[in-house]
Amino acid sequence: MVEKYTVGICLVLAIFFFFGMGSAGVASPLASSPVTSTPVSNTTPAVSTSDVYTAPIGAFTTSDVYAEPNTTYDIDYLFYSRGYGPGTVTCNVSAYDFFGYVPDDELTASMVPSVFTVEPGHVYHSRLHVVTGQAFASPKKLNSPIYRISTYQINIDLNITLQNDTFNYGDDSVSIRGGAFIPGLPAVESDRLTIPENDTAFDLQTGESYSIPLEFSRGQGIGNVSYNISDTSLNVTVTPAEFVSRSAQSYPAQLSVHADRSLTPGNYSFTLDAAGASGIESPYSRVFFVNVTAPAEVPTQSSLPIAFVVFAVIVSGILLRDRPIY
């Protein structure tokens, strides 16, 4: 009886280890496996909707002007109401230099109109009216220790107040410069499109997606920017795809690339173009290269070991059926 008991236990263990361990190397295509693959993606989180895309926004069309004494200058100001309105917009300006607020015989500044009513979804035009006086860029100031090491400059700040103190991005400033023109001043402000260098070429399996962070910064002024994608077999989207941007602000976005399961593995490319951008920080068109591969095979557990284990248990039961109880 002991021999039958020992034979049964050995039979169970042998069959279990032989078929259980042997089946670990069996693989099947991902398409026939119930295992769901994890999308290929970088660790940058999706960009959430920010008020830089929704709050009222405004800016001057230029940020620097070279001026002469006894001269009049008008600088355009554009205000995008977006979702704000109906309501009023109030403009307040102040002028100052290194010594403090400037006197009227040096410069005066005002917004025309200084108060206006807006409706949602419209663009409104105002202007900064600047008049320089006889004392503008006077020899006394130009020969001061401060201006001997810096160009003569008066800053004009604009403060925008909306009805009910609604939050906005309407404040801006302009520099009025005088005296001898110094080459290179003011520094050239350029739009910038920032994309992680390692994200312009990557691998992607069919059925998966990849996310890339973008950031646009406008050098000066205000205007529309839209992201355009060239023709490609990949599914490529940008969120947001179009927006209004102004100077002194950054605008994050998310570029998403998806390869359909039916897409043939191979090398693909597409071009992203930021229409409306300009400056020396070009190019504003970037080419992306994507190597699309087939899904990787994943291990699956064969159903054969289970059947043999059941069989072994049955055989062991038969062998041990007549074993006496001590």
Rank of each mutant, 00 (worst) to 15 (best):
D191F: 03
T161A: 14
P299W: 10
G223Y: 06
Y227A: 11
L304A: 13
I212D: 05
D51Q: 10
K4G: 00
T300Q: 13
A59Q: 07
T88P: 00
N291D: 14
Y227S: 05
A27L: 09
P186M: 12
G25T: 08
E242V: 06
S262D: 12
C10V: 11
A248C: 03
E106G: 02
Y101C: 00
D104R: 11
R246V: 04
S150G: 10
R323A: 15
Q163L: 11
N235P: 00
T200A: 02
F136V: 05
T117W: 01
S316R: 06
A31D: 12
V188Y: 08
A277D: 05
P45A: 08
F270A: 04
V52R: 13
F18I: 13
D105R: 11
D157N: 15
I154V: 15
S316Y: 03
S81W: 06
T108R: 12
I182V: 15
R192W: 03
A137Q: 04
D199K: 12
T49F: 04
T72P: 00
V2H: 13
V115D: 12
E297L: 08
I154C: 09
G121N: 14
S282D: 14
E3G: 06
G266S: 07
L128P: 00
D104V: 10
F136R: 04
D76A: 15
H122V: 03
S217R: 15
Q163A: 13
A109F: 07
V93D: 07
Q153H: 05
N168W: 00
T264Y: 03
A27S: 07
T132K: 05
N155T: 15
A296Y: 08
T54D: 09
G8R: 03
S110N: 13
Q220R: 09
F60N: 05
Y80W: 11
D231G: 10
S32K: 09
I195K: 03
I280W: 09
L263R: 09
A95K: 05
I212Y: 01
I182Q: 14
V40L: 14
P240S: 09
P183K: 11
Y284S: 08
E197R: 12
V93W: 08
G276V: 01
I306V: 15
I176P: 01
A27R: 14
N70I: 01
L319W: 10
S126E: 04
H129E: 08
Y96L: 07
A294W: 02
V102C: 06
V12K: 10
I195N: 02
V35Y: 13
Y101R: 13
L162S: 06
M21F: 15
A296R: 13
I195L: 04
R323L: 12
Y53W: 12
S217G: 10
G8N: 06
N159K: 15
T117C: 01
S190T: 13
Y147D: 06
S144H: 08
A46G: 15
P186S: 11
G219D: 06
S250P: 00
D191Q: 07
S138G: 07
V174D: 04
L107R: 09
T6M: 10
S28N: 08
Y169W: 08
N228I: 09
V257P: 09
V290C: 07
D260P: 04
R321T: 01
D273C: 01
T200N: 00
V298I: 12
S37K: 11
